[in-house]
Design a binder for these strands. Structure first.
Lengths: 79, 79, 79, 79
DNA sequence: AAGGAGCCGTTGCGCC
DNA sequence: GGCGCAACGGCTCCTT
């Protein structure tokens, strides 16, 4: 029956998503633990988050962006 | 000078945004106060947030969505 | 040297986070693919997302919340 | 009647929130328009957003944070 | 290319 | 007063 086929398909999809979401949540927990460890060792987790984000960016692209920010910042601030 | 023109334009834009952002932040503060008042009167603010969101939706659209959710939920859960 | 120890520690932490973030991103990609497949089979992914979220909630808690929403919605709307 | 009192109170709260949300949404629209204008004048809106955010920060605090980011970045990257 | 939806990071709130 | 969680805002991707 076609309705049952659709139902089975939906079930499968929902279950696969839930499984993957569970794994993702587990990893998020692991990451949380690492930050927690960092904090208990006196490291600044907010800064670490920024460092991780910066390292993820392409260096060339990052340099361009920094230049533009400086330029715009200067233009916006001066008379 | 065209560079100065661009600079003036950027200055104007940044200042207009900052002004609007200030007003927006003030309103956000007002909203926060109302929720705070609600909470201190024993109301459930999480529920109020949902109610506000629901009231914003078109009723017809909302009904359709609820029906679909029920249908999918049922299909996903039964054998 | 204590500075080097701190440096090594930071390096380790950053690398562990990056590794975990990579795995998390891969899972996010997998989830996206499943939704994509669902959509190409004519399913409503927005609804599926709601269903997944609902199934994650505790049923008892969910029922309570629904009741409260109805109550508040009614109180807010009637004269 | 106390129930009616609570109902009136809830109604009032919901309506005040909705009013404030409307005003906030209007401002958000205005801000959106300014960015749109900026873009049509060849300005990089992503950079403008960063500039606006930077200008909002306390300079002293910002300098400290930048130093820390450099320090951590260096420690994380070198051997 | 523009607009909207989902995801991620940040900030504020309640708990301990 | 710090920690953990939840809501908010910004960024990115995807559709139109």
């Amino acid at each position: 029956m076609t309705a049952n086929f659709a139902k089975e398909q939906l079930r499968s999809i929902v279950q696969r998503i839930e499984r993957l979401e569970d794994e993702k949540a587990a990893l998020a927990g692991d990451i949380r633990e690492v930050y927690s460890e960092a904090k208990s060792n006196g490291l600044n987790t907010k800064i670490i988050r920024k460092v991780v984000a910066l390292r993820r960016m392409d260096p060339r692209e990052r340099a361009e962006m920094d230049e533009l920010v400086d330029l715009y910042l200067h233009s916006a601030g001066d008379a």
